[in-house]
Amino acid sequence: MISAGEFRNGVTFDMDGNVFQIIEFQHVKPGKGAAFVRTKIRNVISGSVVEKTFNPTDKFPTAFIERKDMQYLYQDGDLYYFMDNETYENIPINADKLGDNFKFVKENTDVKVLSYKGVVFGVEPPFFVELEVTKTDPGFKGDTATNATKPATVETGAEIKVPLFIEEGDRIRIDTRTGEYMERA
């Protein structure tokens, strides 16, 4: 059992026969009245997102989510194929089950496939990936404003903001959770 006061991002719990995952949470203690927990939760099976408030003492059974290591192989239309690293079985997953951060994953990358009672509902890429910059504008001498950035396209086709000194062909490290440039690789 987990109480609403213990909610954190990524926690999964069972409520009214459905499994929900916390996307965002905020503990609120107003000047008047009792404290409460404001959340944005996603139904892991249907994918719908709702905002809901809870009393911090509300308790819910924890839902066990299976996280299986798999390797991303290739894309064919709306289907993305993953290989189980133990059985070498190929599993197709529809594009709508992949999050926005999957745009940083290139072929042959190990990921975690999330499922509940055998139903796949998401894919977790590694927290950090190293990718090559394939297209960006050149930085000009004298462009040294603090924290100045420019758009860059990486080898997976994703576009991110990078510092002015990054050039085409550079390998960079990206945090897939935020989609931000971290450092040169």
Results as ranks from 00 to 15, higher is better:
175 D>A: 11
138 P>C: 03
78 D>I: 00
120 V>K: 03
101 N>D: 14
117 K>M: 08
183 E>N: 12
135 K>H: 12
19 V>T: 03
55 N>R: 09
155 E>M: 10
12 T>I: 00
143 D>W: 13
35 A>Q: 04
20 F>M: 06
113 V>G: 05
154 V>A: 12
40 K>L: 08
59 K>E: 08
181 Y>S: 08
4 A>L: 00
84 D>G: 02
142 G>R: 03
97 K>A: 06
68 K>L: 04
55 N>D: 08
176 T>F: 03
136 T>D: 11
63 A>S: 04
115 S>E: 11
18 N>M: 04
54 F>Q: 01
77 G>F: 04
146 T>S: 10
158 A>Y: 01
10 G>V: 05
161 K>D: 09
171 R>F: 15
18 N>D: 04
132 E>Q: 10
34 A>D: 08
151 P>F: 15
58 D>H: 08
157 G>V: 05
140 F>V: 14
35 A>N: 00
115 S>V: 09
9 N>Y: 08
96 D>P: 01
77 G>S: 11
163 P>Y: 01
63 A>C: 02
143 D>P: 02
4 A>W: 00
58 D>S: 13
168 E>R: 07
62 T>G: 01
129 V>E: 07
27 H>G: 05
74 Y>P: 01
128 F>L: 13
111 V>I: 08
2 I>A: 04
84 D>S: 01
157 G>Y: 04
145 A>V: 09
68 K>T: 06
107 E>F: 12
180 E>P: 02
176 T>K: 06
77 G>W: 13
83 M>H: 04
176 T>V: 00
42 R>Q: 14
95 A>Y: 14
21 Q>M: 15
166 I>D: 07
82 F>V: 01
9 N>H: 10
56 P>V: 09
88 Y>G: 12
153 T>V: 15
149 T>N: 07
116 Y>W: 10
149 T>C: 07
132 E>F: 10
165 F>V: 06
89 E>M: 09
175 D>G: 07
50 V>R: 00
104 F>I: 00
50 V>S: 11
64 F>Y: 14
47 G>Y: 09
148 A>E: 14
146 T>D: 10
11 V>T: 09
28 V>M: 04
158 A>Q: 06
121 F>C: 05
28 V>P: 00
74 Y>N: 12
119 V>G: 12
97 K>N: 05
45 I>H: 07
47 G>Q: 08
59 K>H: 03
28 V>I: 13
116 Y>E: 05
24 E>Y: 11
71 Q>W: 04
79 L>M: 13
100 D>I: 01
14 D>M: 08
127 F>S: 13
65 I>G: 01
21 Q>N: 00
48 S>R: 15
64 F>C: 03
103 K>G: 12
149 T>G: 07
65 I>C: 01
70 M>Y: 05
138 P>A: 02
124 E>A: 10
159 E>P: 03
26 Q>I: 06
48 S>F: 11
7 F>K: 05
9 N>S: 02
22 I>L: 00
182 M>H: 06
147 N>V: 00
29 K>Q: 11
148 A>G: 05
98 L>D: 07
135 K>I: 12
